[in-house]
Design a protein around this nucleic acid. Structure first.
Length: 855
RNA sequence: GCGGGCGUGAUGGAACUGGUAGACAUAUCGGACUUAAAAUCCGUGGGCCGAAAGGCCGUGUGGGUUCAAAUCCCACCGCCCGCACCA
């Protein structure tokens, strides 16, 4: 009897799929399509166990959909531009392209042994000139439609990476990649006009039924819609050309509680005053400082400078409000000026108390004890939907919700000619210029005569020059005269190429569309896109909930507008699934200075009494379930796992135990158990293949269980319940191993088991299929269908509860009437005993479920 | 601060639209086979009482709705995530 030997079995079946072209995506009229896509990897040089989990999930869906009669598109590529390639070139010499393509080769070589059903013929990397040339064509089309523009902007400058960052790439005031504190700089930059789509990108979220609510919520918060009132306070005495201060507020209902006006240190009026008054200048300089760090935001004291200016309240010209310059007011939100309402905003209250300003409540709670802020209480900020009592009202009821009051206040103000209702969004245009070499060149030329001139499409791709060096900081394109100096495409006079390249998020914003026609000489092929789009199932990490997914949604709309995608692709991802990470325990000891020393899992022995270092016997602290990190040494290398156990074991294990959206902890014992189980399945299959025809008495229970398993596993795969599907497969394996059924039934059961396992463990399944005389490849076999008749038996076993506690169970005919069930239940010995002579008040019979006797 | 999610054995987790809580797996312990070990097979596997049959308790805590609650509602505790001087 042959042993389970993945090392020979897996390459054999991979070759068979290759030779048959099993996973090439073909467009045919007779079948529906299914497009499953996992977020493509960055070519770091090694695949990670997280990749294995991610791609295995996609592969389960892809193989399952193939066997249910779909033409499946399941492609793979590489998100290949970006900083690490340049860093490697800076550190070790060489060229980013060489580093990148070598890494891609390595990673492909590591991925192929995992047996993913991918259409490798469609593979591309975003750094291929064929890809980024088409991206340049898209850029030019966007430019023509006004979807890209250039302007001066204060930008987030990363001093370590020496490049500009988008707002989305600044996390807690630091660059998302370098972690360096971000500086402000003014540069001329290219922007995508994503803000034009704020409303639409927000509204369309409601229709993404198969997206996680969490992701939709995060996007909605990011887009940040707010409705408010924009109006102006007139200055009592105009100053240096300003006679009014424009203000935006989302709480116009509190306008009668206003007690001061605050302006940003960057407000035009503040800048005017600053230019003529050193004291103001000193304050503004202080206020601008240190604003970006997390700590500063948390702790920064509210600072104000009384300008001596006063404004008139729009409702009462005799009511004058002082104007302060305040450090907590941002110039780039709203108008850079606010009115302070201390009674209903804690920040304004702190400020008012510090500078001795009025505090006036405009509303109080309907009931309960309330210490008003003017009497020393906290600022009262109820939810907008809560009804409150209005002490100071314009023209609305005494009792109303904040929402009602806001609407009424806007109507009232508009009626009086004081400002107008305005909708604002937090979402800013997407700055895409990067001062880097290893990215897609922006295909324009700067001409002294003609200005910014788009490169001619026939000259695309504008290819990156190969002869560059990275021995000095900055962008090598800036100092590459033969590449940079070109004739103007319009007038032919000497001109200079744009040396900025595109943010790498541009590359990943349309790759999914390119996969539908990866070799087309236009960005997309409309017929192919029409057939294959949308992505039916997109799978990736939650870390891309905002940036990548929002940009892609914008790009899909822009590509529709420029004729590259059909209307139906405006939302390109029909369903999204965000998978959890693979985690691993951290093993740590302490050195003489009590600093942590980390150890690789293979150096640690786990004993009953605890974990010890294999070499020294020193006791090791175990921190369970942490994100894998090289510095913590809690990593497992998929290459080692495949060598030790085979790809099927790795695939099986990463799907078992934990639900796919949650993290799964990699444990050596779990991986061994998975391997043992697959060996067991192989052994049982071998035994069944060799067995002679036997008796048939026990066939029916086995076959019933088989159909139940088909039903449950199918439901599990359809609903991303892979862990539950695997549990059913374990259970069915146990049933099959113990079954006394005849050889024919067992063979059928084993073939079905192999099929149900095939999305997860395709190699072993092919082997068993072959062993049991299955026709062709299991990958091509149609998915088994559960026989409804076999799912229901003639009798059902019902639990009997007395007063909600389970006391017994009875077996009755499936179609027994309620009366019969009730009679049988009440006659049951255990029930009679539990009733203890009591008379049933009521008997609830839920057909097929339960009987509850109420005494 | 605002918004969202989660809490089930020693552990990962299962439980359809409220209907037998703990499927499946890991750890543990016991047994068979073996000179021995591995592998394999059988059993144990929430707590308490009991020889057993069985009983009582049990899904973070407290309350509520219901014939019936891990599931629905309210309050609290704890953990996680997103956003944030956003007017």
């Amino acid at each position: 009897m042959s042993r389970y030997d993945p090392a020979t079995l897996e390459p054999k079946w991979q070759q068979a799929w290759d030779e048959a072209g099993t996973f090439l995506a073909t467009r045919t009229a007779d079948k529906p399509k299914y497009y499953v896509l996992e977020m493509f990897p960055y070519p770091s040089g090694r695949i990670h166990i997280g990749h294995v989990r991610n791609y295995t999930m996609g592969d389960v869906i892809a193989r399952y959909k193939k066997s249910t009669g779909h033409n499946v598109l399941h492609p793979m590529g590489f998100d290949a531009f970006g900083m690490p390639a340049e860093n490697a070139a800076m550190e070790n010499g060489g060229h980013p392209a060489d580093w990148t393509y070598q890494n891609i080769d390595t990673m492909v070589a590591q991925m192929k042994p995992l047996g993913f059903g991918l259409d490798w013929s469609r593979m591309f990397a975003t750094c291929d000139p064929e890809y980024y040339g088409q991206q340049q064509a898209l850029f030019l089309d966007f430019l023509e439609k006004g979807l890209v523009y250039r302007r001066n902007a204060v930008v987030n400058w990363d001093p370590v990476d020496m490049t500009v960052l988008a707002n989305e790439q600044v996390i807690d005031g630091r660059g998302w990649r370098s972690g360096a504190e971000v500086e402000r700089r003014e540069l001329t930059q290219w922007f995508f006009k994503i803000s034009d789509y704020s409303e639409e990108l927000l509204d369309a979220l409601d229709r993404l039924d198969d997206w996680p609510a969490k992701v939709k919520l995060m996007q909605a918060n990011w887009i940040g819609k707010s409705r408010g009132l924009q109006f102006a306070f007139g200055l009592v005495e105009p100053t240096r050309g300003h006679d009014r201060i424009e203000v935006y507020t989302t709480r116009p209902d509190t306008l009668l509680g206003a007690s001061f006006i605050g302006i940003s240190p960057d407000h035009p009026i503040a800048k005017e005053l600053e230019a003529h008054d050193p004291k103001v200048a000193a304050f503004c300089a202080e206020a601008r400082r240190g604003g970006t760090t997390e700590e500063a935001i948390e702790k920064a004291e509210k600072l104000g400078y009384d300008t001596g200016l006063t404004c008139r309240h729009p409702f009462d010209t005799s009511w004058e409000l002082p104007v302060y310059i305040a450090n907590f007011i941002l110039m780039d939100y709203g108008t850079g000026a606010i009115f302070g309402c201390p009674a209903h905003d804690q920040r304004d209250l702190d400020f008012a108390r510090k500078y001795g300003l009025d505090i006036v409540s405009t509303f109080v709670p309907l009931k309960g004890d309330h210490v008003k802020p003017e009497d020393g209480g906290e600022a009262y900020v109820p939810p907008k939907s809560e009804k409150v009592h209005w002490k100071l009202a314009f023209d609305w009821n005494d009792e109303a919700t904040g929402e009602e009051a806001i609407d009424a206040a806007i109507r009232f103000c508009e009626g009086k000619g004081v400002g107008h209702g305005v909708t604002k969004f937090r979402l800013r245009d997407w700055g895409l210029s990067r001062q880097r070499y290893w990215g897609c060149p922006i295909p324009v030329v700067h001409c002294e005569e003609c200005g910014v001139v788009p490169e001619k499409k026939e000259n695309l791709p504008v290819e990156l020059p190969k002869d560059v060096s990275f021995d000095v900081p900055g962008n090598p394109l800036d100092r590459h005269p033969t590449w940079r100096d070109v004739p103007c495409p319009r007038c032919g006079k000497p001109a200079k190429r744009e040396t900025d390249t595109m943010d790498t998020f541009v590359d990943s914003s349309w790759y999914f569309a390119r996969f539908t026609a990866p070799r087309a000489d236009t960005p997309t092929d409309v017929a192919e896109a029409e057939y294959w789009m949308n992505v039916d199932q997109y799978i990736g990490g939650i870390e891309h909930a905002i940036l990548h997914l929002l940009y892609s949604r914008f790009f899909a709309r822009a590509m529709h507008l420029t004729g590259h995608l059909p209307e139906k692709c405006k939302e390109p991802f029909d369903a999204l699934f965000t998978q959890g990470m693979v985690t691993h325990a951290i093993y740590v000891t302490r050195d003489e200075n009590d600093r942590p020393v980390y150890h690789f899992p293979e150096d640690v022995e786990i004993h009953e009494s605890g974990a010890r270092l294999g070499a020294t016997g020193e006791e090791v602290e175990v921190i369970p379930s942490a994100k894998m990190s090289k510095s913590k040494k809690n990593v497992v290398d998929p290459v080692n796992i495949i060598q030790t156990y085979g790809a099927d074991t790795a695939r099986w294990f990463v799907l078992s135990d934990s639900p796919p959206e949650r993290d799964v902890e990699w444990t050596a014992s779990g991986a061994e158990a998975a391997n043992r189980h697959l060996a067991r399945v192989h052994r049982i299959a071998t035994e069944i293949a060799a067995s002679e025809a036997g008796p048939h008495e026990a066939d029916e229970p086995l076959l019933r269980e088989m159909h139940r398993t088909i039903f449950d596993v199918t439901a599990g795969i359809e609903s991303f319940g892979f862990n539950a599907a695997i549990a059913k497969l374990y259970a069915f394996t146990n049933t099959l191993a113990k079954s006394q059924a005849g050889a024919e039934a067992k063979r059928a059961a084993m073939r079905t088991l192999a099929q149900l396992m095939s999305p997860m463990t395709p190699h072993l399944s092919e082997e068993i299929w072959h062993l049991l005389g299955g026709e062709g490849l299991i990958a091509d076999a149609p998915w088994p269908v559960a026989d409804e008749a076999m799912l229901v038996s003639d009798t059902v076993t019902l639990p009997i509860q007395v007063n909600g506690k389970r006391r017994s169970e009875i077996t009755v005919a499936k179609d027994a009437s309620k009366e019969e069930v009730e009679k049988t239940a009440l006659a049951d010995d255990a029930v009679v005993k539990a009733l203890d002579g009591g008379v049933p008040k009521k008997v609830i019979v839920v057909p097929g479920r339960i009987v509850n006797v109420v005494v």
